[in-house]
Design a protein around this nucleic acid. Structure first.
Lengths: 253, 253
DNA sequence: CGCCACATTGATCCTCTTCAAAGCGTGTGG
DNA sequence: CCACACGCTTTGAAGAGGATCAATGTGGCG
């Protein structure tokens, strides 16, 4: 497996787009983000973060897909959440504790170091208030995704789970302009989908066929096509996670 | 249903105990917590927080059990997590966003207002560094509990799920001295247990009977008795969530 | 060409759900 | 003190959703 090599492209654009979409950034904050460079690339299957890492280096994923996972001793694997382009990894409001889960690259993944962002948002400096706010919204979205996942796994059928998950992925990709209402890249294998939805590979395959037969969606060659997004929303009782700005939005403070 | 009435007991003791156990507090922080008074009580079934509340008033639960829940339109209910004595609700490192889930009292619940704590930990004041740290550890524990829940629901059998959940509850109660290795209060009905584990009531009942027959545990009259804790740990692949202090523990700073 | 990872299919089994009813315990009112 | 009701637990029977096992298909790529 390839490991890591350096690049020199201002790929942070996707992270900027995400943060401006879910919150709002002043020019200074944008500049700070734009300054993040030296993207690194890791190959499929590489562990970007390992579960017991003492310190999770703060990062933005700027290309490719990763997943937060955990294994049971007998090999069963569960995916907690995905990490999609523009999303952050280990950027805490406070100094980072141990990693709570392993993060694996599902496709080749590019990321940039978010150390400067981490430094900026710690403490009180009003210059970075916007950035702090945006990262806060971002992490509250992360929590919302975990709750959706629990809802899917605990109380939805296989059919509903798959529809719900695909809608969530679409909306997360839409935040960075990688998805339209009906089309987006879907590089996951059926095994990945199974580990995310708590199902067996075989069953995922059959449900996807059913959805295809019913002309609700198509999954093909790394692309998803939601033919009837509204029907899917109804099936899954899908409620988009609203990126909510913090309660205390002070005017001119 | 009873609503709310005032009391005047320094019940925050249980919250202090929890925070000193998972982190460490200087005298000033302890004093701040000890100053939290005017406990309120709500009855069973009351919604302490509602899902779309704009602002979640920060609180410590000081007595009784609550649960974070969500419903599907057809009545299916999923419990995301429990809120046990000493645990916090809506105490964020940053101003609170919308509530992500409804919180319901499973038993009569007492709580104190944690507004002063919220105020103290925002910003940079070094007097409250310990408190900030402790609340940070606390919320990282909360996240760990969510991940356990996902693991249970996604990849464990009914049998494993119940063992795992009971062990987690025991350890959370141990933090505040309400549990020993083998005994603790368990006021949940089987329906609650079902909604937490993503199972049907009937099946929960049968698995509990099996565990009883196997002399592994006993659930009776609101009390749990783990007869063979080590066997349960093995069955569930249970790993206690380590309350990890933040990575950057500065010596004499 | 042939390998490899991934997708697909069929058959069978079993975990868990659903429905329906009955038991049990406790608190309330007559 | 008993009758009754209500919430919770327990039991049985039947069925569905999903898992497992095993094999075959398919496409990209060295």
């Amino acid at each position: 497996m390839t490991l890591v090599h350096q690049q020199a492209s201002p790929k942070a654009a996707v992270a900027i787009q995400r943060l401006t979409t879910i919150s709002s950034l002043n020019e200074e904050s944008e500049a700070l983000l734009a300054g993040l460079s030296d993207a690194q690339t890791v190959g499929v299957g590489i562990e970007i973060v390992s579960e017991r890492d003492a310190i999770v280096r703060p990062r933005f994923i700027v290309g490719g897909w990763a997943a937060k996972v955990r294994w049971l001793p007998d090999g069963r694997r569960q995916i907690f959440d995905f990490v999609l382009p523009g999303e952050a990894l280990g950027v805490c409001l406070r100094p980072n504790p141990l990693a709570l889960s392993t993060v694996v690259a599902l496709t080749p993944v590019q990321f940039v170091d978010a150390g400067p962002v981490q430094k900026a948002i710690m403490g009180d400096d009003p210059r970075w208030a916007d950035l702090r706010e945006a990262m806060h919204v971002s992490s509250s979205l992360d929590e919302a995704y975990l709750l959706s996942q629990i809802m899917r796994l605990g109380r939805q059928t296989a059919y509903e789970r798959l529809c719900h998950l695909l809608l969530e992925v679409r909306d997360r990709l839409k935040l960075v302009g990688l998805a339209t209402e009906t089309h987006f890249p879907m590089p996951m294998t059926q095994e990945t989908l199974a580990d995310a939805t708590g199902l067996s590979i075989v069953h995922v395959n059959r449900i996807l066929q059913q959805l295809r037969r019913e002309r609700l969606l198509d999954l093909h060659g790394g692309k998803a096509h939601l033919r009837e997004p509204d029907a899917l929303v109804a099936i899954a009782d899908y409620k988009p996670a609203r990126p909510c700005t913090g309660g205390s939005r002070r005017a001119r403070a």
